[in-house]
Design a binder for these strands. Structure first.
Length: 588
RNA sequence: GGUCCCAUAGCUCAGCUGGAUAGAGCAACUGAUUUCUAAUCAGUAGGUCUCAGGUUCGAAUCCUGAUGGGAUCACCA
């Protein structure tokens, strides 16, 4: 559309002897209720045209129509100049841009980006909150890759710490040697069960101590269980063989379980980092910060950074006993990531409860003068809430990821069977289809919403399969494929056609927007833009499908043209959904 | 208390680099299937865009303040 903006600049110069910049030309899509496809807002021009908005629009419109053959007509409504481009312009778009293989294939931009997501704790199974994280991270990685980046998907596994010791200890005390094999339970669920048991027993101890007259805080500190867990952590850090072996064993169970869930979610990683390897990192950065005078030491030996000038607080980076805190590790890990992959950008997909942490982290790295600090980005997303409030693993009030996926597949099966359209498929094909549709519904449900907004999930109200949903889009794809499969003509060559109906034109207009949407989703780190665009596309296609016959088109050329248009739509739907990590079926 | 995020139809959400009569879906109601998949399409109804100011030719959008909701401000991670 740049050629229109250029022409407007010329028009303004010619008509009003005024030079304006390209970004002062407000070009937008014409609203559906008006004639045209592109609209220029002419209000800003009346200052120097010294005429009414309508007149100004008409003059510019006249000039544009004279100078640009692509313009068929124009009309003005108040300060809006609506331009209709010729049908041949749109037909050319279809043949020159959309149908060729390289449509929306971005050239490599030479930049490398790491997307860190998932980052689970190895003491409990994944829940709905993690699902949102995983889907966002994976989708963002797909989008960045499509936009020309080289992407490294990383997972920093939280495999050590007091919370891990809690489930280990509870298993030791109450587990009777249970294993995933002996119980048939998925490893992460088995370990998670003991995490919950720990909390239950711990609470009992606290109550008991309180009944003996201790305060809440005292009881929490003095409970035998928490003391044992702390002891265990110390043994772990000291490399105690028995503890390490137990830790390794239980982690293996968890990884096995996570692997299965990741698989079902359709997410993957190129690089795993383990906190057990990285938790001691960052000490040299503390030294570096002290040497540079960015950090300062307090009399008790603790090391701090003063961020009050930046509107933040003083932040501890090393304890008085010389040990690290959370942010120290993260400083070290950030450096490690950069050293490992030499990335230009590094994205952290982490919930918004850590907004402050990342603000501080990035600021510290900037103050340390790290050249790569400006490429750091925190993709902060909102919590997933239940009607009953926040999910808490410890209390078992979570929507478990595996259960949820089961539920989605079950619903997909019921819906599909009720419609009875795929009765001819094999059992294996059907199972795959139920998975595809169920996950399509879930993924779309979670990804269509702006990441930063909190999300309400009501387990009693199943995720919809109709309307603005994943299955709606999948259905549109299957429907197109069905038509294409019935076409007994070769529809690969450009055919000679010069006129379009409104629905056909609308569809081409929407299709041409796809590459710009991908760029925008990449630069704003927002998969929801893709999700909402694809919905718009599917809706536009369905309207076209209803109004126009494809296989029974009025003549042979038109039939081929509509098949091509359908094929292009299926392609873009499929590509766009892939960016969300959603498969589209051939039949459903 | 300081800081950050959110507030649009009964519900779930778009729209936010200022532009036309604020859009979808769900739920409710009406209609469309001898014709390519009705998980579809067309329509009816549903709005003081939380409130109050300000900037502007023009504000859901920008600014200030208030209200409501959430998060965060650990020698926890």
């Amino acid at each position: 559309m740049d050629f229109i903006i250029e022409a407007v600049l010329k028009a303004v110069k010619h008509l009003y002897q005024t030079d304006i910049t390209a970004d002062s030309v407000n070009l937008q899509e014409t609203r559906k209720e008006f004639e045209g496809q592109v609209t220029i807002v002419t209000f800003p021009f009346i200052k120097f045209s010294c005429k009414s908005p309508e007149q100004t629009g008409a003059e510019i419109g006249e000039y544009l129509k004279e100078s640009l053959p692509q313009i068929a007509a124009f009309n003005t409504v108040k300060g809006f100049l609506n331009i209709s481009l010729t049908d041949t312009y749109w037909i050319d778009k279809l043949y020159q841009e959309i149908l060729p293989e390289d449509f929306a294939v971005f050239k490599p931009n030479g930049k490398k980006v790491m997307v860190e997501y998932s980052s689970p704790n190895t003491n409990k199974p994944l829940h709905l909150g993690h699902v949102r994280n995983n889907l966002l991270g994976f989708s963002l990685a797909q989008i960045l890759s499509a936009a020309g980046y080289e992407v490294i998907k990383a997972n920093l596994v939280n495999d050590r710490g007091i919370h891990i010791c809690k489930s280990m200890l509870a298993w030791q005390l109450y587990g009777n040697g249970e294993t995933p094999i002996s119980t048939g339970e998925k490893g992460d669920h088995l370990v998670g069960k003991y995490y919950v048991i720990f909390d239950k027993e711990y609470k009992k101890e606290i109550e008991f101590l309180k009944s003996e007259g201790q305060t809440e805080d005292e009881a929490k500190k003095n409970a035998p269980l928490i003391k044992s867990a702390q002891e265990m952590l110390q043994k772990w850090e000291a490399g105690d063989e028995e503890v390490i072996n137990l830790w390794k064993t239980m982690n293996t169970w968890v990884y096995d379980g996570f692997g299965k869930t990741y698989n079902r979610l359709g997410v993957e990683f190129d690089k795993f980092y383990y906190e057990s390897n990285t938790y001691l990192l960052g000490k040299d950065i503390v030294e570096e910060g002290l040497a540079k005078g960015v950090f300062f030491e307090k009399p008790d030996g603790s090391v701090w950074i003063d961020l009050t000038a930046d509107g933040l607080d003083e932040k501890l980076v090393r304890r008085s006993d010389g040990t690290s805190v959370y942010i120290t590790q993260d400083l070290g890990t950030a450096q490690l990531k950069y050293d490992d992959f030499d990335v230009n950008e590094s994205i952290y997909v982490v919930g918004n409860e850590q907004d402050y942490h990342f603000k501080v982290l990035f600021l510290i790295l900037q103050k340390l003068g790290k050249s790569w600090a400006k490429g750091l980005y925190h993709l902060s997303y909102g919590m997933v809430d239940l009607p009953s409030g926040k999910m808490k693993s410890r209390e078992g009030t979570v929507v478990d990821a595996d259960d949820l996926i089961d539920e989605m597949e079950k619903t997909a099966k019921e819906q599909t069977e009720a419609l009875g359209k795929v009765n001819g498929s094999t059992e294996e094909e059907k199972l795959h289809l139920y998975h595809t549709i169920g996950m399509g519904a879930l993924k779309y449900f979670l990804l269509k919403v702006d990441p930063k907004k909190r999300l309400l999930f009501d387990p009693n109200e199943s995720v919809d399969f109709q309307g603005h949903t994943g299955p709606f889009i999948q259905y549109t794809h299957a429907r197109i494929k069905s038509v294409l499969s019935r076409a007994e003509v070769d529809f690969t060559n450009q055919i000679d056609i010069t006129a379009l109906d409104a629905v056909e034109r609308d569809l081409i207009v929407v299709l041409t927007q796809y590459p710009a949407i991908v760029s925008e989703a990449a630069s704003s780190h927002n998969p929801a833009l893709i999700a909402n665009y694809i919905y718009e596309l599917a809706k536009t296609y369905n309207k076209f499908y209803h109004e126009k016959s494809i296989l029974q088109a009025e003549d042979g050329l038109l039939k081929i043209f509509r098949l091509q248009l359908s094929s292009a739509s299926a392609k873009v739907i499929s590509k766009g959904m892939a960016l969300l990590g959603i498969e589209v079926p051939e039949r459903m």
